[in-house]
Amino acid sequence: MPQVTLTVNGKTSTVTVEGRTLLVELLREKLSLTGTHVGCDTSQCGACVVHVNGNSVKSCTMLALQAEGAEVTTIEGLAAADGTLHPMQEMFRENHALQCGFCTPGMVMSAIDLVQKNPQGLSQDEIRHGLEGNLCRCTGYHNIVKAIDAAQPLLHAKAAE
């Protein structure tokens, strides 16, 4: 059986997989990182979004073996060791940007990539378009957009440190 070596949230692991094993299956079933969700399994909903080498991707639409040598960050890798939330997580909490929470890990991972790639800042309309790959059945998106907007200066300040 093939093996894949990758670094997830700073920790390097070598895992035995099948050719067909998806990255999300590796994360959830082999590494027990169940914060990354599977909503649709058809590349539509974005519940499974993680960062691979700094880019947000749908981990249900990538083979585990395609992540050989990659740096992967999941929702579990965001908060500091003492439990202090990442500013994007904190802004989601402060702005009541989640209800059932199912979409939240993917939303947060997509939102961080979106904000980091746009240091010039985004309008609320641009944030909405930037979330096209993430579906939420509960919130109506309004507070998610507010949270991401509020997180922009915090993330940009963090990047400038």
Partner: peptide
């Protein structure tokens, strides 16, 4: 094309 995550792959 698609969304950010589709475009990244």
């Amino acid at each position: 094309i698609g969304d950010n995550q589709v475009r990244n792959r």
